[in-house]
């Protein structure tokens, strides 16, 4: 099982290198805030921790994790959208 996970990790890291090296430098700030939002994917783990009743303490940890991951996700995607909107309607020339 663990070898499958490592395999997936390595392959997607390579995929990431390929994808990101094609992003032009002018979009690097939105890239950072957008990938930042993606790192909020840990929300999946947070939901599990906050949801499966396994004692109050675990729920509390999960609850906090949900809040922080969600700030990351929502804030990250929205601010990226705000930035990219400014880039986009530059077509007036």
């Amino acid at each position: 099982m663990i070898s499958v996970l490592v395999f997936i990790f390595i392959i997607s890291a390579f995929l990431g290198f390929e994808l990101i090296s094609k992003v032009p430098s002018q979009l690097h700030t939105p890239l950072m805030s957008g990938s930042n939002a993606i790192s909020g994917i840990t929300i999946v783990g947070a939901i599990v921790a906050a949801g499966v009743a396994h004692g109050e303490f675990a729920t509390a940890l999960g609850f906090l994790a949900v809040i922080f991951a969600m700030i990351n996700v929502v804030g990250g995607y929205l601010v990226t959208d705000r930035m990219l909107a400014m880039f986009r309607h530059k077509k007036k020339k």
């Binding site: 997936i8 890291a13 990431g16 994808l19």
Partner: peptide
């Protein structure tokens, strides 16, 4: 793992 490593690579 996929999402995390994409961000890591980025």
């Amino acid at each position: 793992i996929v999402a995390g490593s994409l961000v890591g690579a980025s």
